[in-house]
Write a protein that binds this DNA or RNA. Structure first.
Length: 244
DNA sequence: TGGTTTGTTGCAGC
DNA sequence: AGCTGCAACAAACC
């Protein structure tokens, strides 16, 4: 559920709820759900891994973290974190983080930083990366201030696809390699989206959870690298390491 | 069956 | 002060 493309799918699946009025709001989220009663949904959006229900002057921000789930016009056998009943249909969210965001979404969020957004700006991402030369590639891809929506699967697949070692220092990358990194995070995110929709995401993984390199057939390395300590899968032979 | 994880926050300790 | 490591959260998968 968690990475950006999956949230894009959720916004598409809930498009029909735009314009509807919230008639019932409950759940064990630590927010005042009564505030939602009578509110009309202006839009459903995603920013990175955030799912946003835009209302008048404020929004509901849902983050699914690692374990969150949802049901559209259905329920699962669990207490919902947030359950919204509309004039027609209902939305149920489980095991997620729910917060209010005050003000206008289009002003409060950095839409150029969302890898799935039409407003995505590769040049701004490049500038952010240049300002963090000591950061490792494996941490940089997971940085939501640079690549909002990128997660651990995207990290491993992108670094393998462009043959870049996860322990490379960002400041040691030649300009062409840095541009390639930015371009591929966006490109792979859309491949992820298409494969997820087609139900073939896992079948297309080249590196994530793999034990053998599909290019040269030597065993993959695996370790919890960088400040983020997230699992990395890489090939010592195929993925070039810059800096040290 | 139990270990693992597509994620983030907050806090203790250094 | 700023960094890092860890716990907490909590559910499906293999």
């Amino acid at each position: 559920m968690p990475e950006g493309p999956s949230i894009v799918i959720l916004t598409e699946q809930t498009r029909e709820f735009a314009g509807r009025t919230i008639l019932r709001a409950e759940g064990d989220a630590k927010i005042d759900t009564s505030r939602l009663l009578g509110e009309r949904v202006r839009a459903l959006r995603s920013w990175g891994k955030h799912f946003l229900i835009e209302l008048d002057g404020f929004s509901v921000r849902i983050h699914f973290l690692l374990f969150g789930s949802y049901r559209i016009n259905g329920r699962k056998d669990a207490v919902p974190r947030l359950s919204l009943g509309f004039s027609k249909g209902e939305l149920n969210f489980y095991a997620c983080s729910v917060q209010y965001v005050e003000g206008e979404l289009l002003r409060t969020y950095d839409w150029a930083g969302d890898v799935m957004s039409d407003a995505w700006d590769a040049r701004q991402a490049l500038a952010k990366l240049r300002a963090m030369p000591d950061t490792l590639a494996c941490d940089a891809v997971l940085d939501q201030a640079v690549f909002a929506g990128a997660g651990n699967i995207i990290k491993n697949e992108v670094l393998f696809r462009i043959r870049l070692h996860p322990l490379s220092r960002i400041g040691a990358l030649p300009a062409t390699r840095l541009r390639e990194l930015v371009k591929e995070v966006r490109q792979y995110s859309f491949d992820f989206l298409a494969w997820k929709k087609a139900g073939v995401l896992k079948e297309n993984w080249l590196a994530h959870t793999k034990t053998v390199c599909p290019r040269c057939a030597i065993p993959f390395s695996m370790g919890k690298l960088g400040k983020t300590r997230r699992r990395s899968f890489w090939c010592e032979r195929c993925q070039k390491r810059y800096g040290d």
